[in-house]
């Protein structure tokens, strides 16, 4: 049997572009080959490499829920060369996709438990597919709480669905921003502090968190205060990646490769790894 070429991207078309914030854009893409689209499966938390040919590749979480079969969604924050190029693309443009890569959230193990999602800024993107998957399979899970924070309301992505999240009775949504802002009707305060105020019970609960390093650091401390054990905390990491299949050698933390053994790790697993985030 011919081996798969892991470096050859599958061509895809951008169907929809959503300007989320001043520096975050969401792309909904479909593989050009209908066969590929139909057979494509992934798990929440897995990532993909988007190619802008001539510029390069960068890694993003597939943030549409696996239950959506008609497109893949990626949210891209403009930071470097590739993301800037991606931001210049519009509907109908062609990109390359290598996906799915990496591991995924242990959503099977989370069944029957309460879930707390804590997302900061673009860190909401990786949580979204898992949360939507759980909402699609609502009866399998206990109470679901979402704490989503951003610097200010204009930095908040997924604006268009926040209202529906707030309105859902089977989802407790808390939105927070770092500092006061005119017209803001939700909480003001840093995520770790707000988390302590909400004080979700750690009893039979899993916390899933993603965000900038400094937020993660204090959120982990807050969770510990709330009685969460390392095994009850799940996060997803970001590293510079090239190959995506554990060869090129740059995303390793000790002998673990974020592209293969991650990006999803429990806090307990992270403590086992050398300290090199």
């Amino acid at each position: 049997m011919k081996d798969k070429n892991h470096y050859l991207p599958e061509m895809a078309t951008i169907n929809e572009v959503i300007q989320e914030t001043h520096n975050i854009m969401t792309f909904r893409v479909t593989f050009n080959d209908p066969q590929v689209m139909e057979n494509f499966t992934f798990q929440p938390g897995q990532v993909g490499q988007l190619s802008s040919f001539g510029t390069g590749e960068a890694t993003f979480v597939i943030n549409s829920p696996p239950t959506r079969k008609d497109y893949l969604q990626f949210s891209v924050m403009r930071t470097g060369e590739v993301t800037s190029k991606l931001h210049s693309l519009s509907e109908g443009d062609q990109i390359g996709v290598r996906a799915p890569l990496g591991n995924f959230f242990p959503y099977e193990d989370m069944k029957g438990k309460d879930i707390v999602f804590i997302g900061g800024g673009i860190g909401m993107a990786p949580l979204r597919p898992l949360m939507l998957y759980m909402l699609d399979n609502r009866k399998d899970y206990g109470k679901i709480t979402l704490l989503y924070g951003a610097r200010s309301p204009v930095d908040m992505a997924f604006n268009y669905e926040l209202q529906s999240w707030l309105e859902r009775e089977d989802l407790e949504t808390h939105l927070t921003i770092d500092a006061k802002y005119e017209g803001w009707q939700h909480t003001v305060g840093l995520i770790p502090n707000v988390l302590l105020d909400i004080a979700p019970s750690s009893e039979n609960c899993v916390a899933v968190t993603c965000g900038p390093p400094i937020m993660i650091k204090f959120t982990l401390q807050a969770l510990e205060k709330l009685g969460f054990k390392d095994e009850q905390i799940v996060t997803t990491l970001e590293k510079r990646m090239k190959c995506g299949v554990g060869i090129c050698g740059r995303c390793n933390i000790g002998s673990s490769y974020v592209c293969m053994d991650g990006p999803v790790f429990t806090a307990a697993q992270l403590k086992e790894l050398p300290n090199e985030l």
């Binding site: 470096y7 040919f53 001539g54 510029t55 390069g56 590749e57 090239k242 190959c243 060869i247 090129c248 050698g249 740059r250």
Partner: peptide
């Protein structure tokens, strides 16, 4: 030592992805 980089190089309407 086996680590590598992947970069795109383009001239005009053509390009190559190199390792």
């Amino acid at each position: 030592c086996y680590c590598f980089n992947i970069t795109d190089e383009t001239t005009g309407m053509k390009g190559t992805r190199f390792r």
